[in-house]
């Protein structure tokens, strides 16, 4: 009993403010108390790892999820499971901060880390400008603001260049972005994917759907007549399979004019810095004569 009391005291002692401790608000609106300097971080989603690397804090990452495969430096890091989160493995790495993704992780996971005295910071990317913004935030958080600002400006410049190329385009092909080729998962309202399509000079036909992750009907696609269909099926996707799975699409303009493309999923489904390259690749598909070099 006495030991327990002592332990409690110890914990209470720990949670009171240390000199230099910072209080910040994360993208979930949670209040996070951080130690003055952070040297060991772990991440809970591949997109967040990529953002942390972009912010110049790659060398502070001491562990990533088994889904992580970029940048190549993650290959030599300890890995832990993410579905579900392997709390033991992460705690064993003794991180000073855990970075989480608002899209993937839940605040309940954060509560478990918090109960062990490990702060969790959530990053949200719901629009393209969130990418450089999140990189700057992470730079400030992790004490690498110089490198983060540099990278953020690079990305912003790249986005601005693309915007210059595509802003004045009169023809904006009606574009459908699919996640799966059989069951038609797509992006609805409030996704960054519509920003990417806009910036690439297209018009996303699922932008106004109220469901965030709708499963489209074949008739919706037939009736909205997409001129380009792109899917995160991988660059080696055999596009004839799409019509095989959806035989009625033989008259969809995108199919008639051979405008169906498989895209590298990581550049579109991971809300991180590579979205910018993804937007460029999409622009080269939508406007090959206008957008030539990245």
């Amino acid at each position: 009993m006495r030991q327990a009391c002592l332990l409690c005291l110890l914990f209470i002692g720990c949670s009171s403010n240390f000199p230099g401790e910072r209080t910040v608000e994360d993208d979930f609106g949670r209040t996070v108390v951080l130690p003055p300097t952070i040297e060991r971080i772990t991440t809970l989603a591949p997109s967040v790892t990529e953002l942390a690397f972009a912010a110049g804090a790659g060398s502070k990452i001491v562990g990533v999820t088994t889904f992580d495969d970029y940048p190549p430096a993650v290959d030599s890091l300890p890995k832990y499971g993410m579905l579900p989160t392997d709390f033991e493995a992460i705690v064993a790495l003794d991180p000073e901060l855990v970075l989480a993704s608002e899209q993937v992780n839940s605040p309940k996971e954060a509560d478990i880390f918090s109960s062990m005295g490990i702060p969790v910071y959530f990053v949200a990317v719901n629009a393209l400008p969130d990418v450089p913004r999140a990189i700057r935030d992470l730079g400030d958080l992790l004490g690498t603001s110089e490198a983060a600002t540099r990278r953020a400006i690079e990305l912003e410049d790249s986005l601005a260049q693309l915007a210059v190329l595509t802003a004045g385009l009169f023809e904006r092909p009606r574009t459908l972005f699919l996640i799966d080729d059989v069951t038609l998962y797509a992006f609805g309202q409030g996704s960054y994917i519509h920003d990417m399509i806009d910036l690439a000079g297209g018009h996303s036909i699922t932008r106004t759907l109220t469901t965030r992750a709708p499963v489209l009907t074949d008739e919706f696609v037939l009736n909205s007549r997409p001129e380009v269909i792109v899917g995160s099926f991988g660059p080696r996707y055999d596009v004839t399979k799409l019509v095989l799975h959806h035989p009625t699409w033989d008259i969809v303009p995108a199919v008639v004019s051979d405008q169906v493309y498989g895209l590298h999923p990581d550049y579109y489904l991971r809300p991180g810095p590579r979205l910018v390259s993804g937007a460029w690749a999409l622009a080269r598909i939508l406007h090959p004569d206008v957008v030539i070099n990245p």
Partner: peptide, 10 residues
Amino acid sequence: ARAVLPGAQL
């Protein structure tokens, strides 16, 4: 199931 969500299905 077809009608509940516009453009989408359950």
